[in-house]
Design a binder for these strands. Sequence first.
DNA 1: CTCACCAGCGAACACCGTTCGCACTTCACC
DNA 2: GGTGAAGTGCGAACGGTGTTCGCTGGTGAG
Lengths: 259, 259
Amino acid sequence: MAERSAGEGRRERLRRETWRDLRAAALAEVRDVGAAGLSLRSVARRLGMSPAGLYRYVDSREALLTVLIADGYHDLADHLVVALGAGADELRAEERAAPQVPVVAPPDAGTTARLEAVGLAYRAWGVSHPNEFGLLFGDPIPGYAAPEGGVTVEAMRRVGIAFAQPILELHAAGELALHPALGAREIVGQMGPMVDLGASMPAEVAALLLLAWGRLHGQVSLEVFGQHHWLMPDGCEALYRAELARMLVELRAVPEPAT
Amino acid sequence: MAERSAGEGRRERLRRETWRDLRAAALAEVRDVGAAGLSLRSVARRLGMSPAGLYRYVDSREALLTVLIADGYHDLADHLVVALGAGADELRAEERAAPQVPVVAPPDAGTTARLEAVGLAYRAWGVSHPNEFGLLFGDPIPGYAAPEGGVTVEAMRRVGIAFAQPILELHAAGELALHPALGAREIVGQMGPMVDLGASMPAEVAALLLLAWGRLHGQVSLEVFGQHHWLMPDGCEALYRAELARMLVELRAVPEPAT
DNA sequence: CTCACCAGCGAACACCGTTCGCACTTCACC
DNA sequence: GGTGAAGTGCGAACGGTGTTCGCTGGTGAG
């Protein structure tokens, strides 16, 4: 009786819907009990399925976590992209509403403002999604979860690109502080034989990008994982804003004093 | 027949030895399979004990992990203290050999050199103890592992102190760059009602200390947790050294240009 | 209409953390 | 020295977990 539109049979549709529900249930479980506490049986209960039934959709618990990791990177990347003030057309092509981000750079904002917005959005996402943050950036899964050229690296590239975009703009405008003493040659030398940082990404800029990401990540990581909780129980926003401001200053080229 | 020396009965001695072996076995287990994979039954097997027997020494798996976390912080702190070039007398009073640290500042080294040594030791410990690093700085234990004024915070204070020492020296020498724009007042305002940073630790210095720690921690965290593995499979030493050097420069006061 | 396919299920296996009651040793006290 | 309390370890058990296997019954293509 169904209309059979466009070769999408009833079975395929049901399967896709179940698959979507499964991921949503698993994500909810992670939000509730954390990645380490995710239990396939509990996910099955949420879905009203039998535990064995899940294995029609997922190879193992670890595989499910890998899917959630990729989803998590995409969600984070979406938030960063929105904070950049970009149009919603750069979002992931997926059935997902545009995320609500507290600080969004206005479309005509300067490069520095956009970089600041991305930095703030990074912390905001981590603080408001602590278990997902732990899933992405905490202990790797016990048995290892490094799928070679898999779906997760592709997703985390999007996060890197969000950070890279304003930094590349800064570089294009000649406002990025590139010290030759950085030792970019050695750093890039440690990179894999062929890491294709698009053509417009010089090695020094790539190194600066990694350093900037790590610098912000350290603050967020210590805060989200509770390392500062006994010191600052109400969160570390002031600390983070201070570091972000310092970083923005130091990233910009200071005109050399005439010697 | 035993000599019963100094009120230490046979039973207490055996108990202490078993307790030491238990912690060693659990640590070995963590090193092998990671914190998330630690299994009490497996620890019991290593000891040739029954699983139930462990409960004479440990209240639960979580409690054992808490002990390991405290041990881990002490081990890390020991490494940092050694790197500082301090005498072994500042090490933790425990039956433990002084750790071997690759870079040790000579006893008469300048403050900057000692700070650099601590920074390098931090990464060196993380890279060579990835699973313990994950235990300390990865996801908090699913059910939470924040013992209020417990043994772990005391241990992680030692880590903070190791970082603080050279920074305080820098401050005492008037060589620490303290920007009023840092907003130290707000930052310290977010700190708990009474955090006793010893008398010689001004608020601005405390803020700078947290920022410096986080800055280095971010790099180590991303590297140890494998976030950069696809980019730099052979480790990120060059990247880290660059960031450490930049940080050392920026921490030192630049003499104000005469206006 | 037929028949391959496939989602889902129940039962089972091995492993896990944890509890309980029981043997056995050690120690303190009379 | 004898006696009773305290401590140590064990085996069995319970409920939970991830995962596999063989089965049923509906789906969809020829």
